[in-house]
């Protein structure tokens, strides 16, 4: 059966499009102190203009070290923060055009978030059943109590827990089980898009494997689209179709997962790959790159990575590189662009 053109266009349109997204935070001291001590306002550029899109049913991961802005991107996308600049489009709908809560609700229902800390993401005073049912009630998806209970039971089974668990409180569960509850809550409004902010970084490895497997299964079964945030490159490699590497609020390289690991282009990506201890490389000697991530309040001039970059020259210090696409890989680096740095 041939699809008509409109349906084909919907199918082809990425579920999430983010364009030149930026978010500043005012981290100045209170006004009175500033006046007394003659200090200026201090603005933290947590996210300084990122652009990416996630096709339906795929996973895009953002990796980077703490302070690179990956969590801020996640929170911007689900509307926990309002952008300073730029646009977020969910299935073609610009979120900025939806001003009232009522107008946002249909879009909010379609996206949910999974959080990092399974000990803080569930209200300790609520029963698991009420936690999972909250989105159902908030969006008015079901009214009948029995119907809601049945749906909660189904969700619990779907994430590998038992229906009876809905009567319990969060403290009765282990970290991995709590993360399953968190996933069940996220799935309860039948979303198409999940934003996962370090969903396994608080878990032990054997439990992490369970959760990652579960998330992959759910993606296949329900056709979910993921924005996956992590600092763990191995986890990211396991989960993603495409990977964006962030440094100081910007994406420095965005590539298909396999390509990124086989041929990392940006010097920072290379550093990260070099830095991670891996089981395969027992006893290997490495020369770790020095330096630390600079403060996003006072980012270095030009390319933010230049103080740590072994390939930096005068141009890198003066001029910020733009994200350029080459053979399906987007990279923001003068050295790569000029061919100074071999691929």
């Amino acid at each position: 059966m041939p699809l008509d053109a409109a349906a084909a266009a919907t199918e082809a349109r990425p579920l999430l499009e983010v364009e030149d997204l930026a978010r500043d935070f005012d981290v100045s001291k209170p006004l009175l102190f500033r006046l007394l001590q003659g200090e200026k306002k201090r603005i933290l550029h947590a996210v300084a203009g990122v652009t990416f899109a996630i096709p339906r049913g795929t996973t895009l991961s953002l990796v980077g070290e703490s302070g690179c802005g990956k969590t801020t991107v996640a929170r911007l996308v689900v509307g926990l923060y309002t952008p300073t600049r730029g646009a977020i489009r969910i299935d073609g709908t610009d979120m900025a055009t939806l001003t009232s809560r009522a107008a946002q609700a249909p879009v909010r229902r379609r996206m949910q978030m999974i959080f990092q800390d399974p000990y803080a993401s569930l209200n300790p005073r609520w029963r698991v059943g009420d936690i999972i049912a909250e989105p159902i009630r908030a969006f008015g998806l079901m009214r009948d109590r029995g119907e809601i209970e049945a749906r909660v039971g189904q969700l619990l089974r779907q994430v590998g827990l038992s229906e009876k668990d809905s009567e319990k409180f969060p403290h009765e569960f282990s970290g991995g089980q709590r993360q399953r509850i968190s996933i069940a809550r996220a799935l309860s409004s039948n979303p198409e898009f999940l934003v996962c902010d370090e969903p396994t970084s608080a878990l032990d490895v054997s439990v992490q494997a369970q959760i990652l497997n579960l998330m992959k299964d759910l993606q296949q079964r329900l056709g979910l689209t993921y924005l996956f945030i992590s600092h763990n490159l191995a986890v990211v490699r396991h989960m993603s179709d495409r990977i964006g590497v962030m440094y100081l609020g910007k994406i420095v390289e965005l590539a298909p997962g396999e390509t990124l690991f086989a041929r990392p282009l940006h010097p920072y990506t290379r550093l990260l790959l070099e830095a991670i201890p891996d089981l395969e490389m027992t006893g290997r000697q490495r020369t770790p790159v020095g330096g630390e991530v600079p403060s996003p309040i006072n980012p270095p001039s030009g390319c933010a990575f230049h103080p740590r970059c072994p390939f930096a020259n005068d141009r890198c210090k003066a001029e910020a590189p733009a994200l350029v696409t080459r053979e399906g890989v987007q990279v923001a680096c003068h050295a790569v662009e000029e061919g100074r740095l071999a691929a």
């Binding site: 929170r75 509307g79 809560r101 909010r108 809550r185």
Partner: peptide
Amino acid sequence: NKEYVMAARVIGLSSTRIMTSH
């Protein structure tokens, strides 16, 4: 600032409701 409050915000609950019930 705990994540359960963020979870409630993500689904668009009003501040009053988050304050009283969470």
